[in-house]
Computed example of a mutant assay.
Amino acid sequence: MILLPRGNPVKERIDPGKVNLPDALRKLQGGGFTGYLRFDAKSGTGIVIFQNGKLISALFEADREQLIAYDAIARIFEESLAGNALLDIYKLSPDLALSIHALLHGEVLYKGQELKLIDIKALLGKLKEDQVSGCLRIYTRERIALIFYRNGSPLGFFHDGSTDMETNADTSMSVARLPGAKIDVLISRGQEGMVLADLMGTADLGALWKKAQERIARERRSREDEASRNQELHEKDRRLKLQGFLRTTAEGHLGKIGASLADKAAEKTLPQTGGLTETDLAPFFENLAKAAKLVAGPSAINSMLEEMKKGARAFLK
Rank of each mutant, 00 (worst) to 15 (best):
D164M: 07
D225Q: 14
A197E: 15
M308P: 11
V48K: 02
D63W: 09
I89C: 03
T269D: 10
Y110C: 00
G134S: 11
R141K: 15
E192A: 10
R189Y: 10
E65S: 14
Y70L: 07
A41Q: 03
K290P: 01
R137C: 08
M1C: 07
T34I: 02
A41M: 05
K293M: 03
L240D: 15
N287W: 10
R177I: 02
D63N: 13
K256V: 12
E192V: 10
D15Q: 01
S99D: 13
I120C: 00
Y90V: 06
I216A: 09
V185I: 10
G244V: 01
E166T: 12
F315L: 09
L81I: 13
L96S: 03
P283K: 07
I89P: 03
L86S: 08
T202P: 01
R26A: 09
L59T: 07
D95K: 09
D15C: 00
E251C: 01
E307T: 15
G201L: 10
L254D: 08
D164N: 08
L127F: 04
A289Y: 02
E142H: 12
G206H: 12
S222N: 14
L305E: 09
Q272M: 05
S43P: 00
L288N: 04
K309Q: 15
N302W: 06
D280Y: 03
S172M: 08
